[in-house]
Amino acid sequence: MLVGIESSDDAAVYKINEDVALIQTLDFFTPVVDDPYTFGQIAAANALSDVYAMGGEPFLALNIVCFPDCLDPLILSEILRGGQDKVTEAGAVLAGGHSVSDDEPKYGLSVSGFVNPLRIMTNNRAKPGDVLILTKPLGVGIINTAIKAGIASETASREAILSMTSLNRIGKEATQDINGVHSITDITGFGLLGHAIEMAEGSNVTFRIKSNDIPYIASAEEYANMGLIPAGAYKNRDFFIGRAFISDQIPVFLRDILFDPQTSGGLLISVAKEDSQQVLDNLINSPVAYACIGEVEVFSEKYVIVE
């Protein structure tokens, strides 16, 4: 066993031999968007992400399905088609799964992936002098809340969906074979700050994040100011705030975005400064916003400082 429950990584890693380790992960949730095909894509991209965050390549996936008897089975087949398309795009095989009857639909995948044991990326090896790169924009939790409220603009919905359905493969491949890449995590339910704190704490370092450089979906500012903030963002704030220092200069909406729980969020990559440009160059074809958002320092007082 190489990575298990003792770390806050999302996947388990088991060494099969000197060259191959198995990554095993699963994730599923209730619909975040109305369109079943899009939901299937998002849930699959989200589940596959855990394999990419460990530096691995997914090869096999199984469906996890909860579905009410009273709903049109056509909705389910659309969800499954969305999942299938993402698994195919990832170059993996979808080989069945299991479904149970439930009051509320839920969908996700159990995914197996392979990784070279020497190339496993965990979230606790960031080093002082590293640069932090975020591979997707923030704010999708807020946009999803605005979608539920019927207030989100078409542009905002489109941007959020594009981000949520994008595979983190592009981020993973951007780091491939670059020795200076020390640590990776994917940004999900704890928001950027929660996951950044976990990574900094596990690495015993301080992340200095520059708020002006954080990519986010533009409309998230307007919707956050309107109070369209998911309960999870407040929970994250209350849980993590003591381990971070956030400058008073940062507007309230941006604080909300920092704690906003992300569905199928991007990768946070900690890479040696001299190799960071290479990673950014490799991300050039990404369909979504990415940016260098800060630096890693020797630990001082707080795990994350946002200025």
Binding site: A224, G227, L228
Partner: peptide, 15 residues
Amino acid sequence: DTETSQENVCRAGKS
């Protein structure tokens, strides 16, 4: 009846 709603409603008003 939740703190989340309380904060969000105040923000909605302010906006």
